[in-house]
Every structure is written in C-alpha cells, then in structure tokens.
Design a protein around this nucleic acid. Structure first.
Lengths: 150, 150
DNA sequence: TGCCAATAGTTGACTAAATCAACTATATAG
DNA sequence: CTATATAGTTGATTTAGTCAACTATTGGCA
C-alpha cells in the first residue's frame, strides 16, 4: 500500500533526523569535555578505571573497543600524570593491573562533576513535567534500541 | 526534601546514561559512514551541497560551523574528485558558487542510501508498535532539547 | 578619487586522534 | 621442548582539526 510505504519512509527519516540532531549535540558535549584535560576516549577510560577496582589493559580494550596501541599510549599518559598505578600480576607477568591513584580519582570526580553539571543544565531548561518526559523518552529509546542488539 | 533531591540526581544520571549510550551508537554510525569514502564532516558538507542548489563556502561555513581552512581543503578535495563544480560570481570575484556535479549527486545519493539503510536496520528490529514508539520518543527529545536553545 | 576596513578564500605549519603492523616477553597446550 | 596464543609496547603513518598569515577583492567614506 502506498500509505504504508510513506509511513515507513517517514519513520526512517525521523530516525535519521534524530541521529543528525544528536550528533550535533554530541559535538557540543565533546567540546564540553575538552574543557577538561581529557579527550572523550580518555574520559571513558578514566570512567572505566573508576568503575572497576582493578583491571588490565585488555579488559579495558574489550569493553571500550579500542586499538591496543592507542590504549597503551593513553595509559602511558595516565601513568606519566600519576593518575594510575600499575601493579604486576603475580601469576602472569604479561598482565599489569591498573588502578586509579588518589589523583586519578580526583580527576575522575572532576570529570564526573562536569558531566553532571552538563546534564543538569539540559534539565534545568525544562519544567518538572518536561524533565520527567525527557528522562522517560531517553529510557524508552535505550530500551528499544538495545532490545535485540544493534 | 530528600526524596526530591534523589529524583533530580536520578534524572541527571539518566540523561548522562543516555548521552553515553548514544555516543557509543554514534561511534558505530561514524564508522558506518566511513565505509563510504567520506568522513562525517565531508558527509555533512555533501548533504548541504545537495540541499542547496548553489552556495558559497562562507554560507556552508556559517551553516556547519567549520573552520575556513578546513572547509577550503574539503572543497578542494571535492573539486579534485570532480564532485563539485565551481563557478565564479559575476558581481563579486571573491566568491565562488559551488554546485554538485552529476558525480557529486551520485555520491550523495549513495551516502543517503547508506544512511537510509542504517536507519531502516534500526527500525527493522522492532515491531510496528515499537517503531511508532521510537519515532515518537525521538521527536519528543528533539522538541524538548531545542525548545530553549542549548 | 584614494585609502581603509571588511570579506572570501587559500595556504603552511602544527597538534591531536587514531590506525596498522612489527616487535618483545610471557604463558600455555600438546 | 616447541608451537601458538596472549599482553602489552613501539614506530610509522594517516587523518582530523585548528590557527594564523597571506592574497585578492569589495565597499564605505573622507
């Protein structure tokens, strides 16, 4: 049916529109993050390190899907800045355990606070009701888009 | 009130979670686009060129917020690949009008088709009802997030 | 008219992000 | 004991993106 087809292409267009819309927003978010001394990827690594007490580069890699050379350099940078501490694994000399230092945790907290603030600034523009609506729709999108992988 | 405060931080966390979620998705989208011979920014420029019959670099610049050197090089690349045709403005020799060539239009169509396909693949995983829901929520988010700038 | 500021676009130099492949060292399976 | 796999490092290179200096042209205005 003609009408059905139109509906479908409309939906596709709506999804694409949203993608464009959000990539633009992400650009903003990106620059926001860059007002800290971390790149977006570094921020993710930092977050991951904060979330897990003790990890290895390989664990990070599989979680964040990063090139190993790339990650190795990021970690080297973190170590140079004394954000992480490295301990060697007893049973396996190939692996190194990574942990945030106090300084690392503080850096993470700062980053976290910034992100918090950014999210809050989005919400602040809305009425209570709209805030609820926004959060609900975001959750819905996540649910719908993860239901069957992607 | 304690309870109120909890709600607020929950909302903030939900927004942040969504941001992370969607940036990851966008990463995928990014690489998707890179299976074409265009970067994300090049794709946007191409799209803009396709949407407006005849533009100038400055018009593109103000629309897409790009560095002028950066844009200049992108356009030079497009010209080298015969994707755009340049005509000089009669009344103002500083400006050049930019138009897609046939090849440029075909490149844009291909890009468009890929994006279309990508959006369709997201929708395909959902039931009719969920497709409707997804589209509706995306529209809601856009509306809420643009209502008062950002 | 003649000069000055603004505008359009180009170019060179540079930094940061990201990828690839080659390499070292260790561990494990047969 | 050797093969193969795994953990991580390093060098070389590509791409993205920014900044500032530069040329050429236009338009205002004294």
């Amino acid at each position: 049916m003609k009408l059905d087809h139109k509906k479908v292409t409309d939906s596709i267009e709506a999804v694409r529109h949203f993608n464009r819309f959000y990539t633009q927003r992400i650009g903003v978010l990106h620059k926001h993050l860059l007002q800290t001394p971390f790149s977006l990827v570094e921020g993710r690594v930092l977050r991951e390190l904060a979330d897990t007490q003790k990890t290895t580069a390989t664990a990070l890699r599989s979680k964040l899907a990063l090139d190993r050379g790339y990650l190795s350099r990021i970690l080297r940078g973190f170590a140079a800045r004394r954000l992480i501490q490295i301990t060697y694994c007893k049973n396996d000399d190939r692996q190194k355990f990574l942990e945030l230092t106090g300084k690392g945790r503080r850096a993470h907290s700062l980053l976290n606070a910034r992100a918090q603030h950014h999210a809050a600034s989005i919400l602040d523009k809305l009425s209570r009701a709209d805030q609820k609506r926004l959060v609900a729709t975001m959750r819905t999108i996540e649910k719908l888009m993860t239901s069957k992988s992607s």
